[in-house]
Design a binder for these strands. Structure first.
Lengths: 123, 123
DNA sequence: CGTCTATGTTGACAGATGTCGATATCGAGT
DNA sequence: ACTCGATATCGACATCTGTCAACATAGACG
């Protein structure tokens, strides 16, 4: 029996990949599912992006001004580029407030990731 | 803007990337942690590898013969290449038994990934 | 030994990705 | 309107990555 998963009201990033994540160990992934999940993993598959994401995720309210997290050892255009990737992947959202831009962890991301792991019974 | 970096009791680090994963939302990742985690995500950041991994993970005993999972739509060398990547990333182990080679999910991987998510209280 | 089957390795190539400098945009004050 | 600080976009570049065909290796079995 195939997957009859109820699609959560996952964020709809512009064109990207957040709606996903059947348990990794539950059965063979379909091609579309594997592509969506791979897109999410790809967004996290860079040390700089991972540090940017963790900085946002560990800020109060799970949101942070770019100015507070941009010091990661690469140039400002590169930071902007990585944040854009995270946003396009549906992991972060961005909002402008006056002079500054705030990035926040997209609400359903953590739930989606934990659903993906859904550890089976034998352990 | 100094950052207190409380190094959590990280799992014993080998050479590969599997032993890792402080909670993503608990605080800023250190550079080494971010590199280890990025290596793990990178291994999963490909649809073909994700399908190979899920096929192994969903087999009985979380192990499978290459011959049982190789039908993913790419050539045999490409399958071998992807399995090598997953092994080098510490996600799978391989063992030869006579004619066939069996890949299995590395024991600590699922625990490490769930530790990484460790959802905080405020949801 | 020779051959068959299963899997890994090599070499080559197109395309994707991370990075930067230069430049553009967008608000806030002056 | 002008300037300034904060982010985003653009263009260019070197490197990394996924893919395949061809070849190599390793057991099994005669």
């Amino acid at each position: 029996m195939s997957k009859k998963r109820v699609e959560l009201p996952v964020l709809a990033a512009e064109n990207a990949a957040a709606p996903c994540c059947p348990p990794l160990t539950a059965g063979e992934l379909s091609v579309p599912d594997s592509e969506r999940m791979a897109a999410m993993f790809k967004a996290l598959a860079d040390p700089v992006r991972l540090r940017l994401f963790s900085r946002v995720a560990s800020h109060p309210g799970r949101e942070a001004c770019v100015c507070d997290i941009a010091d990661v050892g690469v140039s400002q255009p590169t930071v902007s580029h990585h944040l854009k990737k995270l946003r396009e992947a549906g992991l972060l959202t961005s909002e402008r407030r006056g002079t500054w831009v705030y990035y926040a962890v997209a609400p359903s991301v953590l739930a989606a990731m934990s659903a993906m792991l859904d550890l089976p019974a034998d352990r």
